[in-house]
Design a protein around this nucleic acid. Sequence first.
DNA 1: TTGAAAGCGATACCAT
DNA 2: ATGGTATCGCTTTCAA
Lengths: 337, 337
Amino acid sequence: MDKPRVTIHDVAEAAGVAVSSVSRVLSNHPSASPNMKSRVEAAVKQLGYQPDLVAQSLRTGNTRTIGLLMKDLSNPFYGEMLTFLANSMMSAGYNLLMMTSSGDAEGDSKIIEMLNQRRMDGFFLATVTDQSPLLRKTISSCRNPVVLLDRDFTNLDVARVFADHATGVNSATKDLIALGHKNIALMDGSAQIRPARERSNGFLRAINEAKIKNGVGSPINGILSPSSARAKTRELMNLPKSKRPTAIITGSTYVTIGVLEALSDLGLSPGNDLSLVACDDLPWLRVLRPRISTVSRDYQNFGTTAADLMLSLLGGEKPKTITLPTRYEARDTSQPV
Amino acid sequence: MDKPRVTIHDVAEAAGVAVSSVSRVLSNHPSASPNMKSRVEAAVKQLGYQPDLVAQSLRTGNTRTIGLLMKDLSNPFYGEMLTFLANSMMSAGYNLLMMTSSGDAEGDSKIIEMLNQRRMDGFFLATVTDQSPLLRKTISSCRNPVVLLDRDFTNLDVARVFADHATGVNSATKDLIALGHKNIALMDGSAQIRPARERSNGFLRAINEAKIKNGVGSPINGILSPSSARAKTRELMNLPKSKRPTAIITGSTYVTIGVLEALSDLGLSPGNDLSLVACDDLPWLRVLRPRISTVSRDYQNFGTTAADLMLSLLGGEKPKTITLPTRYEARDTSQPV
DNA sequence: TTGAAAGCGATACCAT
DNA sequence: ATGGTATCGCTTTCAA
């Protein structure tokens, strides 16, 4: 039942050679006679020896493991993206130690420190905020390569993968304006992280360029669940007609779900009673009727790009920032006022 | 830039004490004078010392890390569930090393071996199949506690968390039969894993008890993507009327999406032209109209139950199997023939 | 080509 | 209560 662990010493003994020789054979060192090789390999096979990766890490100083921190594995976009990230890293021989964010900067900071203590070879970070000086400092203390996933700590010598949310939302907003909308609501999550800020930027740029005064006012941030999106939407739709939005742009999937629920509550139909653009084009959106207009990003591309970037850093290259496109696609719910 | 790592030796030297004393203070050993304590703590603080967890693992033999293997992080149910699993384990002081399945038994077997070499303190496994002797053998060689996530390797001394798919699907099927359906199709994923098999069982039990001969025949397995579900559905709906299903039960989210796409292609509306029951009640289903009948399981419950079970095993308790309920909820798409 | 031994950074036993 | 030292399992330098 409790078989003893077989170590490199056992192999050496069984083969009648020194441990250093065993190590050489196992790591394909050039100087190893065919005879030595076969003896060691026979012993390895016979004993079913498997190297202890913890000991190996302590000695060599690298773990071949990348730490990953993100807020929320249940976020559909990140879930999809992660599959590709993980697969790319795995086929390059790296593993992922995944941590879910605690929800605040102090907690995330602690997690990153822990990953450091575990000697991670690299870090993928999607922290809960990118505006915290504490987190900024903790990240700067990471001894190994860092790739930020759509987070924008400034003046940090790390790599970044961005999605160009601003351009996509800007196109969407411009299209809605061209369709005659003057009361457009952007409902989004936390402005503590880059994506929501970028969407705001793209949105406001279009509003300002068109020189309309947007009846709804500024982007609405801090909506973190379907239920709060639902409540907020009902509130908006009950405004006096002059301030009531004729179009809504939803920044995240959770918001989209809540908005759709609210519209259903109110007996309003998107595309008909108001226009709607959703950010993130997930599979289930394809089965909704009417077809909802979207601003989409490619999660496969995001995942593999982040992995490639990490691998280049591990290979000694310099950190850089890569921005991936987003695309506005008008469907049934982009309609004239 | 490349600051040297500060070790326990550095702390000992700075404090003018022995390394063993530093270790004692850090692990709250009873015999440590207040004076010693304060000297060490001062040195730790001054140097910013943080223990090396790799070295610690090698010495103590435990990593406080649980290995996790699953097919597909993008599977929405597992994504949601994982959040709760991860949070529970983290608050108990454990981390998760997450691996995505390679797609075949050999690959999964290799991954589990690797996790073993990394000295994981435990294993959460949702392998790509639970019918492989190779995998069975590899799992039995795990030295630390194993919790199977809805996988059913028999005669293995490990813990299991099951969802009672059979009962939920059985209720759904019975309801459809009561509504007059005699041609019911169950479309599902791989029968290599327990969930699809259980759904088949629950389905067939209802069919046989009702003594109807189901026009569609046996459950349809092996549907792994929306596109193949879409193709299969079109094929079914083009059958001669006597064999054409009047109701469909979809075993997974991917299948549900594909079926809905196909129905849209064919100009058929669920609830009206045929009945439909979907397994797994995800948030976005709530915004579809008509409301789709579902067989649901509680992902939060699944995640925390799995975590609690693992923690009990780590605490020395015996492995057991826990089965969690599923629930059939009739909505707008369970209609009379 | 091969073996002996030092060392990675901790913990814990054994003296004192 | 404290210090010295063996040990965890491996890699790598240094001699032979």
